[in-house]
Design a protein around this nucleic acid. Sequence first.
DNA 1: AAATTAAGTCAATAGTGCTGACATATTTTT
DNA 2: AAAAATATGTCAGCACTATTGACTTAATTT
Lengths: 161, 161
Amino acid sequence: MRPSNEYTEPETLELLEFVELFFFAYRDFVSDPDRILEEFGFGRAHHRVIHFVGRNPNIRVANLLNILKITKQSLGRVLKQLVDEGYIEQKAGTKDRRERRLLLTSSGRELARKLAKPQLDRIAKTLAAAQPEAKAYYRRIFYAMIDQENRSYVEDLVQKG
Amino acid sequence: MRPSNEYTEPETLELLEFVELFFFAYRDFVSDPDRILEEFGFGRAHHRVIHFVGRNPNIRVANLLNILKITKQSLGRVLKQLVDEGYIEQKAGTKDRRERRLLLTSSGRELARKLAKPQLDRIAKTLAAAQPEAKAYYRRIFYAMIDQENRSYVEDLVQKG
DNA sequence: AAATTAAGTCAATAGTGCTGACATATTTTT
DNA sequence: AAAAATATGTCAGCACTATTGACTTAATTT
């Protein structure tokens, strides 16, 4: 196995390095929750729903669709399972009763914590291994990787509490 | 929609921000190649195979399995399609003829470039928007996110050429 | 009263992944 | 040379995630 001779400019090779690092980091980052989800008979889609409902209590279905960028049908199936199995609770909106507001039940909160734990630990270790100023750099880099039109939305969503 | 009252310590909120930014960055990062793959009737698995074969000409099947961390059967189906449709070529190893060495054909190289382009552009923009020293931080953070036991392997794989 | 909005539902399809067992060819070990 | 190990491929079947497009219900707005 030899290095590819397709790309030769050092700038491009550096960019390719980042593409690959992103792939490997993501692969390992999701591997811990994947193992936990398996015990519950759930998949990654369930994790994402549990996560964003937990972080955004009373979120509407439409909002969740916009975050996950999947279709109503894909979300519907996953959400139904989570509601049926008692992890998520639905309430009609108080102002507009067409809306279904989503909330974690106590089992839901427990599952959310269980899934979050290995990822929080991994990132805590990552940041501990880096210099303190690394935080400002990672934040800027991640925002720059997000589609420009989604950036301010993501910023609002993420930097609350 | 109100901020979650589940986590209150600022350190944890910062870690959660990182978790979410990683999700959004990955979501957008794969969206461009996904659109291109659709035109070819391929999916993300095909992209990964094309990418790593392109970057590692003459790679063996076992090595590819180790990189992708999927089963032989999952790879088999995707690889067969790519070979049948003329994007990847297989050759028996010269020393050990049990091995199948994988190579991109010229169509394969063309597709690889097409898929890589938007991701290289996205990262180039990201790095251009950051200070020059950001690269070192970026690299260190990604390596720290990878499972410890895979790090040196990934390092060797990624920093060649 | 009509139009719009939020959400749920239907059937059908595709891509990716899994397990477990088995087959083939080739190389290495005994 | 025979036996064991290795690299790869193959079988059938199943599960999860995602898609499209059309339709329904309920509630709100115009």
